[in-house]
Amino acid sequence: MNELDILYQELILQHYKHPRNREPLSGNFIIHENPSCGDSLRLQIEWEGSDRIRRVVFDGHGCAISIASASIMTELLSGRTRLEALEICKRSLSYLRRDPRDSMDPGEGIDLGDLRALAGVRQFPLRVKCATLAWHGIEKELKSTISTPKLVGKDLNPR
Protein backbone atom coordinates (compact mmCIF):
# COMPACT_ATOMS: atom_id res chain seq x y z
CA MET A 1 0.00 0.00 0.00
CA ASN A 2 1.47 3.41 -0.82
CA GLU A 3 1.59 6.15 1.77
CA LEU A 4 -1.49 7.92 0.52
CA ASP A 5 -3.60 4.78 0.50
CA ILE A 6 -2.65 4.13 4.12
CA LEU A 7 -4.34 7.41 4.99
CA TYR A 8 -7.24 7.17 2.59
CA GLN A 9 -8.26 3.56 3.01
CA GLU A 10 -11.22 2.45 0.98
CA LEU A 11 -13.37 2.27 4.11
CA ILE A 12 -12.50 5.90 4.93
CA LEU A 13 -13.35 7.10 1.46
CA GLN A 14 -16.63 5.20 1.73
CA HIS A 15 -17.52 7.02 4.94
CA TYR A 16 -16.51 10.32 3.30
CA LYS A 17 -18.61 9.80 0.21
CA HIS A 18 -21.57 8.30 2.06
CA PRO A 19 -21.43 9.53 5.64
CA ARG A 20 -23.73 7.86 8.16
CA ASN A 21 -26.07 10.02 10.22
CA ARG A 22 -25.27 13.17 8.31
CA GLU A 23 -28.33 15.31 7.85
CA PRO A 24 -29.29 18.96 8.03
CA LEU A 25 -29.64 19.85 11.70
CA SER A 26 -32.28 21.93 13.37
CA GLY A 27 -32.93 22.78 17.01
CA ASN A 28 -30.02 22.68 19.44
CA PHE A 29 -26.68 21.63 18.15
CA ILE A 30 -23.09 22.41 18.91
CA ILE A 31 -20.60 23.77 16.45
CA HIS A 32 -17.07 22.49 16.65
CA GLU A 33 -14.46 24.11 14.45
CA ASN A 34 -10.84 23.85 13.59
CA PRO A 35 -9.77 27.49 13.43
CA SER A 36 -6.55 26.70 11.57
CA CYS A 37 -8.31 25.26 8.53
CA GLY A 38 -11.88 26.53 8.78
CA ASP A 39 -13.43 23.07 9.00
CA SER A 40 -16.67 23.18 10.90
CA LEU A 41 -18.86 20.36 12.18
CA ARG A 42 -22.29 20.66 13.74
CA LEU A 43 -23.15 17.89 16.14
CA GLN A 44 -26.36 16.89 17.85
CA ILE A 45 -27.16 14.15 20.35
CA GLU A 46 -30.65 12.71 20.32
CA TRP A 47 -31.25 11.37 23.83
CA GLU A 48 -33.43 8.47 24.79
CA GLY A 49 -34.40 9.27 28.37
CA SER A 50 -31.77 11.17 30.28
CA ASP A 51 -28.84 8.83 29.95
CA ARG A 52 -28.93 6.92 26.71
CA ILE A 53 -27.93 8.25 23.32
CA ARG A 54 -30.46 7.25 20.70
CA ARG A 55 -28.46 8.69 17.87
CA VAL A 56 -25.69 11.17 17.12
CA VAL A 57 -26.23 13.23 13.97
CA PHE A 58 -23.99 15.76 12.28
CA ASP A 59 -23.58 18.08 9.34
CA GLY A 60 -21.07 20.70 8.27
CA HIS A 61 -18.03 20.68 6.08
CA GLY A 62 -14.60 19.18 6.38
CA CYS A 63 -11.99 17.06 4.67
CA ALA A 64 -12.32 13.33 3.98
CA ILE A 65 -10.61 12.50 7.26
CA SER A 66 -12.76 14.71 9.49
CA ILE A 67 -16.02 13.71 7.78
CA ALA A 68 -15.18 9.99 7.84
CA SER A 69 -14.19 10.21 11.49
CA ALA A 70 -17.46 12.00 12.34
CA SER A 71 -19.43 9.38 10.44
CA ILE A 72 -17.70 6.54 12.26
CA MET A 73 -18.20 8.34 15.56
CA THR A 74 -21.97 8.53 15.08
CA GLU A 75 -21.99 4.77 14.53
CA LEU A 76 -19.93 4.06 17.59
CA LEU A 77 -21.84 6.30 19.98
CA SER A 78 -25.43 5.72 18.98
CA GLY A 79 -27.18 3.46 21.55
CA ARG A 80 -24.60 4.05 24.27
CA THR A 81 -25.07 5.48 27.73
CA ARG A 82 -23.33 8.71 28.52
CA LEU A 83 -20.55 7.03 30.47
CA GLU A 84 -20.00 4.42 27.80
CA ALA A 85 -19.88 7.15 25.19
CA LEU A 86 -17.34 9.15 27.20
CA GLU A 87 -15.16 6.05 27.55
CA ILE A 88 -15.35 5.44 23.79
CA CYS A 89 -14.41 9.08 23.17
CA LYS A 90 -11.42 8.84 25.47
CA ARG A 91 -10.22 5.60 23.91
CA SER A 92 -10.82 6.80 20.35
CA LEU A 93 -8.89 10.01 20.91
CA SER A 94 -5.97 8.07 22.41
CA TYR A 95 -6.20 5.58 19.57
CA LEU A 96 -6.01 8.27 16.89
CA ARG A 97 -3.20 10.10 18.62
CA ARG A 98 -1.36 6.99 19.66
CA ASP A 99 2.36 7.35 19.80
CA PRO A 100 3.82 4.26 18.08
CA ARG A 101 6.31 3.99 20.95
CA ASP A 102 3.51 3.37 23.46
CA SER A 103 3.32 -0.24 24.47
CA MET A 104 -0.34 -0.17 25.41
CA ASP A 105 -2.86 -0.14 22.62
CA PRO A 106 -5.72 2.19 23.62
CA GLY A 107 -7.98 0.24 21.30
CA GLU A 108 -7.47 -2.99 23.22
CA GLY A 109 -10.57 -4.60 24.73
CA ILE A 110 -12.96 -2.16 23.08
CA ASP A 111 -14.79 -2.29 19.78
CA LEU A 112 -13.70 0.74 17.83
CA GLY A 113 -15.41 -0.42 14.64
CA ASP A 114 -14.34 1.31 11.45
CA LEU A 115 -12.20 3.74 13.41
CA ARG A 116 -9.33 1.27 13.06
CA ALA A 117 -9.19 2.16 9.39
CA LEU A 118 -8.16 5.67 10.49
CA ALA A 119 -5.03 4.45 12.26
CA GLY A 120 -3.04 5.55 9.21
CA VAL A 121 -3.52 9.15 10.30
CA ARG A 122 -0.83 8.64 12.95
CA GLN A 123 1.74 8.73 10.19
CA PHE A 124 0.51 12.19 9.18
CA PRO A 125 0.83 14.27 12.36
CA LEU A 126 -0.69 17.33 10.69
CA ARG A 127 -3.88 15.42 9.92
CA VAL A 128 -4.50 14.00 13.39
CA LYS A 129 -6.49 17.11 14.27
CA CYS A 130 -8.80 16.41 11.33
CA ALA A 131 -9.49 12.93 12.67
CA THR A 132 -10.08 14.12 16.22
CA LEU A 133 -12.29 17.13 15.38
CA ALA A 134 -15.67 15.41 15.79
CA TRP A 135 -14.49 13.51 18.84
CA HIS A 136 -13.39 16.61 20.69
CA GLY A 137 -16.69 18.26 19.90
CA ILE A 138 -18.85 15.43 21.12
CA GLU A 139 -16.71 14.81 24.20
CA LYS A 140 -17.15 18.43 25.23
CA GLU A 141 -20.88 18.17 24.68
CA LEU A 142 -21.15 14.93 26.66
CA LYS A 143 -19.25 16.44 29.56
CA SER A 144 -21.09 19.75 29.51
CA THR A 145 -24.54 18.17 29.66
CA ILE A 146 -23.75 16.06 32.72
CA SER A 147 -25.99 17.40 35.47
CA THR A 148 -24.19 18.18 38.68
CA PRO A 149 -25.78 15.55 40.97
CA LYS A 150 -24.80 12.80 38.58
CA LEU A 151 -21.26 13.97 38.43
CA VAL A 152 -20.82 13.83 42.18
CA GLY A 153 -23.36 11.08 42.90
CA LYS A 154 -22.27 7.84 44.50
CA ASP A 155 -23.89 5.74 41.78
CA LEU A 156 -21.15 6.73 39.38
CA ASN A 157 -18.66 4.67 41.33
CA PRO A 158 -20.77 1.93 42.91
CA ARG A 159 -17.76 0.18 44.35
Binding site: N2, E3, L4, L7, Y8, S36, C37, G38, D39, H61, G62, C63, A64, I65, F124, R127, C130
Partner: peptide
Protein backbone atom coordinates in the same frame (compact mmCIF):
# COMPACT_ATOMS: atom_id res chain seq x y z
CA UNK B 1 -12.35 17.27 -3.02
CA UNK B 2 -11.59 19.15 0.18
CA UNK B 3 -8.51 21.38 0.06
CA UNK B 4 -6.68 19.39 2.76
CA UNK B 5 -7.22 16.13 0.92
CA UNK B 6 -6.11 17.70 -2.32
CA UNK B 7 -2.98 19.13 -0.72
CA UNK B 8 -2.24 15.73 0.81
CA UNK B 9 -2.67 14.08 -2.56
CA UNK B 10 -0.37 16.63 -4.21
CA UNK B 11 2.22 16.03 -1.50
CA UNK B 12 2.24 12.34 -2.42
CA UNK B 13 3.36 13.58 -5.85
CA UNK B 14 6.01 15.80 -4.24
CA UNK B 15 4.09 18.97 -5.02
CA UNK B 16 4.05 21.33 -2.04
CA UNK B 17 1.02 23.63 -1.91
CA UNK B 18 -0.86 25.33 0.88
CA UNK B 19 -4.42 24.51 1.90
CA UNK B 20 -6.84 26.21 4.29
CA UNK B 21 -8.11 29.76 4.56
CA UNK B 22 -4.76 31.49 3.89
CA UNK B 23 -5.32 33.93 6.75
CA UNK B 24 -7.92 35.73 4.66
CA UNK B 25 -11.26 34.56 6.02
CA UNK B 26 -13.25 37.65 4.94
CA UNK B 27 -12.02 37.08 1.39
CA UNK B 28 -12.78 33.37 1.37
Amino acid sequence: VHSHDLAQFLDSRSIAVRSGHHCAQPLL
